[in-house]
Nucleic acid binder design. Sequence first.
DNA 1: CGTGTGCTTGATTACTCTCAACATCGGTGG
DNA 2: CCACCGATGTTGAGAGTAATCAAGCACACG
Lengths: 228, 228
Amino acid sequence: MKLHCDTCPVRDSAACSALDEEQREELARLGSHRTLERGEVLFHAGDEADVCATLNSGLLKIAHVDADGNERILSLVHPAGFVGEMFAPVEKHDIVALTASRLCLFDRRDYERAIERFPALARALLRRSSQDLFEAREQIALDARKGAGAKIANLIRSLARAASQSPCHSAGEFDLPLTRGEMAGLLGLTIETVSRQLTRLEKDGVIAKTGPRGIRITDPARLAALAG
Amino acid sequence: MKLHCDTCPVRDSAACSALDEEQREELARLGSHRTLERGEVLFHAGDEADVCATLNSGLLKIAHVDADGNERILSLVHPAGFVGEMFAPVEKHDIVALTASRLCLFDRRDYERAIERFPALARALLRRSSQDLFEAREQIALDARKGAGAKIANLIRSLARAASQSPCHSAGEFDLPLTRGEMAGLLGLTIETVSRQLTRLEKDGVIAKTGPRGIRITDPARLAALAG
DNA sequence: CGTGTGCTTGATTACTCTCAACATCGGTGG
DNA sequence: CCACCGATGTTGAGAGTAATCAAGCACACG
């Protein structure tokens, strides 16, 4: 299925936005669309790294399951994010859809050739990779934050920011795209601790649960204080 | 001080190794050498991001100090590593030498222009950035590892690998380039816990302390088992 | 010497994990 | 229609681990 860049929601933010019309058109001929339902797997760790993709809409997780079967979420991938190993023969992590998602899929070889031919694309990917690196390091710093409460507060804030389309202000009420287990995996906690911290935040009047997944932030200032 | 690429220890592994002789020569004219003693600061968080650098020899840390004054080490930078924000106006983290270090320093603007002119350099940096991203995610996965013992065991193994020049096999005896406090900051633990775990490893006959910083790995198999 | 830094060790506290039970919701099949 | 089941989430009691608080040791340096 040929790509339709005209109506692409990340037309101006994804790596390909660095290309001019003609180049983009050429890249578009190489790619195809794919949709994923919640829970569908894009890559398994250990797969051959023969495709890469730009996320169009939805939400993905990059995860690692250890020997005991515990899943640790290494990163979330938001729209305009790029996934796939460009310089390694195999995928190193699982990549799974957290919500119904849509992405532009490319053969890795094709994409590498495109990088060769369009230096602007290489620079755009470098920029994005640097950004991802920064976010991964933020995540590491977050892990150092004392207390499960601070981690949860931080996560809620960041999900609220992602839930609103505009990057400038966060949503006051939204649905968590993650199960308790996924939140636990993302923060290095257990399901029970996540659940307890959430009820604690509710008891303290910082948030209100508007459903099993729904959240309303009733006291943003205190939430920010808790997040450190 | 003009760069001497001929004798550079990372001539074949740093980003600039992607350039041909002529291009490298041109890049070399833009850069200068700098040496750092242990503890010397290359960047402070919040500094204007006007230089970037390739590490030639030595060891750096990328660190973040939180509101309480606790330092969390986000990453170590080994020779051939690249530091400096290419796409952000300010440095986001402290970068400090852990051992006497030598690096090639470039004005950020100059380097950005070089990236524009030498697409191979952009690709090499992209490759390196991807590698750093992978390592950052490994670090996140490490944080999830249960038990301080596993973290310490892992750290010792990775430092042993870095201590030997060849990437294929690790050193059996070496000096830790990090203080207890730095190890604690890297692993998200306290100094006391690090100290206790190290004496525990010694009591169990897994390692021997050959000095305040010296380490000999006496039972590599068990160390590997402990690291998970 | 005295001082400071890095390291170790001990006692206590606090937090999260673990194990376990129960609630809720949707789907399935008798 | 109702009983059952699996997945998800909540709550409780107890155990275990690392943080905290507090000394003390070794060594380098002025």
